[in-house]
């Protein structure tokens, strides 16, 4: 709280420390939600610029982390790819080797080439199915399954009722199962 107050008074060092405390979560959410590193970085930057601009209006009515996560959710939901290559990287098939190695998609060397190919195909189909969901369904789905947030935590982040989150997740899961029934 002291750090937030210092940052509100214009202390840029305090602001940077706040960024360092919360940015891993923000980047993680962004990176799971989009499929290109550039878009993830765009979301990250937009979140912290909004935090920076809105910091003086923060009134401690919620946890600072909750506020940052709410902004993250809003930015994800309104995000439009600013970088053209995003459309080309929507599906894993189109990703080049260099990009995937650069951003941590390290494949298990113990896994045979056939197994790797099957896994890549399944991941590709999951991403394609995710791309067919509405932004809210997709966000709830990735927050729950890939980021491990509980339904009540997602409800706080999205500023809606837990029942609404449950409905998004239920619909998303049903649609994903339909899409992936012959894959997994």
């Amino acid at each position: 709280m002291e750090l937030v107050r210092k940052a509100q008074q214009g202390d840029i060092l305090a602001f940077e420390q706040l960024v360092f405390r919360h940015d891993k979560k923000v980047l993680s959410i962004a990176a799971r939600y989009v499929t290109s590193a550039d878009d993830a970085k765009d979301i990250y930057q937009e979140v912290f610029l909004r935090v920076y601009r809105g910091l003086k209006k923060f009134r401690f009515k919620s946890e600072f982390s909750t506020w940052v996560h709410r902004i993250t959710v809003n930015v994800c939901l309104t995000q439009r790819s600013r970088r053209r290559r995003t459309m080309q990287t929507l599906f894993l098939d189109d990703r080049n080797e260099e990009d995937s190695e650069a951003h941590g998609e390290i494949r298990d060397p113990a896994m045979g080439p056939d197994h790797q190919a099957v896994n890549a195909d399944i991941s590709s189909r999951i991403e394609k199915a995710l791309g067919g969901l509405s932004p809210k369904q997709k966000l709830v789905f990735t927050l729950r399954h890939y980021e491990g947030y509980k339904l009540n935590e997602i409800a706080v982040m999205m500023n809606c009722a837990e029942g609404t989150v449950k409905r998004y997740l239920f619909t998303a899961t049903r649609r994903m199962r339909d899409q992936l029934k012959d894959a997994i």
Partner: peptide, 25 residues
């Protein structure tokens, strides 16, 4: 179905390099 989803992670891995780039930008 849930186990298979978790086993096949999607999106970009938010590694240290990506974090460093994002911080710099």
């Amino acid at each position: 179905f849930h186990a298979a989803l978790v086993a096949h992670r999607v999106g970009i891995e938010p590694d240290e390099r990506l974090l460093a780039e994002a911080r710099q930008e």
